[in-house]
Design a protein around this nucleic acid. Sequence first.
DNA 1: CGGGCCGTTGACTCTTGTCAATCGCGGTGG
DNA 2: CCACCGCGATTGACAAGAGTCAACGGCCCG
Lengths: 219, 219
Amino acid sequence: MQTALPAPAIRGYAEPVRRAPEVKVLGATRVLAKDEELFGEGDRAAFFYKVVSGAIRTSKLLSDGRRQISAFHLPGDIFGIEAGDEHRFSAEAVDEATVIAYRRCSLESFASQDGAFACQVVNAMMRSLERAQDHMMLLGRKSALEKIATFLLDLAERLGDDHVDLPMSRTDIADHLGITIETVSRTLTQLERQNIIELPAHRRSIQLTNKAALRRLDS
Amino acid sequence: MQTALPAPAIRGYAEPVRRAPEVKVLGATRVLAKDEELFGEGDRAAFFYKVVSGAIRTSKLLSDGRRQISAFHLPGDIFGIEAGDEHRFSAEAVDEATVIAYRRCSLESFASQDGAFACQVVNAMMRSLERAQDHMMLLGRKSALEKIATFLLDLAERLGDDHVDLPMSRTDIADHLGITIETVSRTLTQLERQNIIELPAHRRSIQLTNKAALRRLDS
DNA sequence: CGGGCCGTTGACTCTTGTCAATCGCGGTGG
DNA sequence: CCACCGCGATTGACAAGAGTCAACGGCCCG
């Protein structure tokens, strides 16, 4: 699906090294169907992952079912690294997706051998942390309108296109932004009425008609 | 606003740590007065830090002044590591505090030499990430009551005492939990009326009388 | 004694959540 | 081919949790 994208250069990840004889084959690719679970909260964290195509959501549940999606991981993103030996959140495919799985122990053993790879992983962690910190600001201090604006701009930037093809449902968006699907829907409609975005008939894509206005809302 | 403490408002860097001969001299200790800034959003990230005593808050501001405190760092915690060369949030002393500053370049250069230290730093980052993820759940999906319950239990655990001596103001708590000071105040009063906590006259400490009840509220 | 700061409380507002009805598309089977 | 069904999204009416604004209280400190 995302095949044609010139591998978001911003992220600067190398393609999985195939030739490079000095580096052993570290990862195995895995294809996931829509909503298929990659790992669950509490599973042994034997692997961590890199997204090749599609999107993965990582989330946590409260006992009564409330859900918080901590992040959507797009091609190039690394996720699922843990300090302990259990995954502390679950990961599912938002839509059909492909990932590369890396044995976790490789990380420790290769850390010294393959400095570049270790560095890449550490960088991925730092990027996750930065995203998490920005997202806390969003969750704790922004209004529904600001949340949606931030979300759309972020997605557009990461996908490198003003015509955002949403891989996720309204429910996913709501659970990521800490609001309800009704509020997501109402806010999008409101933005459409103000001619800031366009919502085509099949609701899974959004055209950002007026990015400047969105940025003004974004705080 | 620096409260007019008679103590020297600005204290420079002290001598490098002398004790702990097994650890190379990596850092310089620094003492901070209440509300003194350790670094600001956008400052060059030349150092990262470890808390020795007291508490440090790291926060971000929105253009209109809304603030989100991403974390309170207590003795032993490491914070301020960045992927880029700028700090992405600011750090201030909640109360009088002591930290050790580590040159950031030490990290890269010592990573190979001093595996143990590098490991400690990576672990600190992972712990930060875990905390951030838990906190996103709190910010996005918990009610004010649940937020306060979670906060009190977490603090009690980290400080290792059911009699929590709050180092921070109501404003700090509010900005950490994504609510207002009025809501913090009302919620604490409510918990007191239900005999779940006790609020002594000087409002900077809280006795957790009924932890079980708190845990039930915590979700 | 007076002022400032922090926290508490009350009255009211408003954003967002809840509940419920409806729409519209896509798939399926008659 | 078309009617039906189911699911996700939208919309409306209403409720409620939290925010806002304002007054007040207590404490520390000059």
